[in-house]
């Protein structure tokens, strides 16, 4: 019997690139900053994730999708651990991830250094459709825990904004 080629951490990271946010299926758990670590010990794979929002129902789906993805690749001994600290911030969304959000029609979050939205001042959020800066917040809460609802006064389209956290 041939022994299987040794599994590398990079191989697992590549596989996990296929696990997307179920609510925003263009961005991977790594690009989102939810995937915190991958470790291997005695042939067992430990994947560490952290929630975006504490109540986000997508977390359970992401956890199941990670296990499924690795099982499909023949990696059966998988444990997904969840940590709360350090707590997730939108700064962990990669630049490539932010570009994908924008292309998907979601205004990406600004940097937390520019945390005006949380402090009461509204940030300038350019419309992801037409780029206009003449936009207005319709609701501080949106279709998922991580988003707020905005409207563009130029192209008149509504859009989601990924809240800065």
């Amino acid at each position: 019997m041939n022994s299987a080629p040794a599994l590398t951490r990079q191989h697992i990271l590549d596989l996990l690139e296929n696990v997307k946010d179920p609510e925003v299926p263009v961005i991977s758990v790594r690009e989102l900053g939810v995937l915190r670590d991958v470790e291997m010990s005695d042939g067992k794979v430990f994947v560490t994730i952290t929630p975006t929002y504490t109540g986000c129902p997508a977390m359970d789906t992401m956890r199941e999708d990670i296990v499924k993805e690795l099982h499909n690749a023949g990696i059966m001994d998988v444990e997904v651990k969840q940590i709360l600290s350090p707590s997730w911030t939108t700064d962990w969304i990669s630049d490539a991830g932010k570009a994908k959000l924008k292309a998907y029609g979601i205004a990406p979050p600004e940097k937390t250094a520019d945390i005006r939205a949380l402090k009461g001042e509204l940030p300038v959020v350019p419309c992801p459709q037409c780029g206009s800066k003449d936009t207005v917040m319709v609701s501080a809460f949106g279709s998922t825990a991580c988003k707020a609802l905005w409207k563009c006064n130029t192209c008149l389209e509504p859009f989601d904004q990924f809240k800065c956290l």
Binding site: Y53, G55, C56, A145
Partner: peptide, 8 residues
């Protein structure tokens, strides 16, 4: 949304 945060 707030209910969801609280239940989390």
């Amino acid at each position: 949304n707030r209910a969801l945060d609280l239940i989390g």
